[in-house]
Amino acid sequence: MTTPLLEELAPAGPRRPRPIARRSAALGLLALAVFALVGPLVLADPAAQDLGRYLESPSLAEPLGRDDYGRSVLARLAHATRLSLVLAALCVATALVLGTAAGIASAWLGGWVDAALRAVSEAFVAIPALLVVLLVSALASGGSLWALYLGLALAQWVEYFRVVRARASLVLGSPAVEAAGLLRLGPVHIIRQHLWPDLRPLLTTLASLGMVTSILAMSTLGFVKVGLQPPRAELGLMITDAFPFYDVAPWMVIAPIGVLFLLTVCFLGLRTSKDA
């Protein structure tokens, strides 16, 4: 952009990826994943009610206490975390595969394929993810995991499509690919040495942001009561349900908020580039 007065002294920006931050984010995620995957196997039944132990305070046996139905908050939290992580990963994987394939096809083939895909994406782009999920969950009978999955994946593929299409057109139009064409190196070389190495860091960033978006969207939907339905343990639902008790039993509301916050911060810390 600016004329380099000192090409050899390009100043290091203040936003270099910090390896320590990335490593701790990865560690934090690993801990959360272990909690989500192992927790439900070893902890008590999250649905088991015991009204006699209404709002019991945290103790050694029950580190996060019990909720207004006497259910174990820790066990419910483990189930909710597993649900969030697994569903979000499924949504992100679906959207990523769909969007990346469509984006590369659009950039590579051009012509009517590009025109058609772009027209569809233009319509999707103006519809917020939340709206798509709302409409899809209205389609299902309510509280269905399928609706949530479909809605979130459908709402997110556009992001991958647009980013991948833009970057892939840039790469495919670059002198490097032109040179590869003159050298008759074929499409495999272009995908393996040009496209994939260039897209990979972008996709990593988009995928970690997508996890955040999915997890937050799920909890938001639970919160506005059109997502998953009680008694299923879900982070947003847990926050809503616990909210009326925030001054008598603060652990109930702090626990899911803490997990939600940790999940977002860790995924945000995992990004490779500095995109928002």
Binding site: P175, A179, L182, D198
Partner: peptide, 16 residues
């Protein structure tokens, strides 16, 4: 038929 480019940096795959 081969070509040399004005900016050789752009004529090689950037990230490998």
């Amino acid at each position: 038929l081969q070509k040399l480019y004005q900016d050789p940096g752009l004529s090689f795959p950037r990230r490998v």
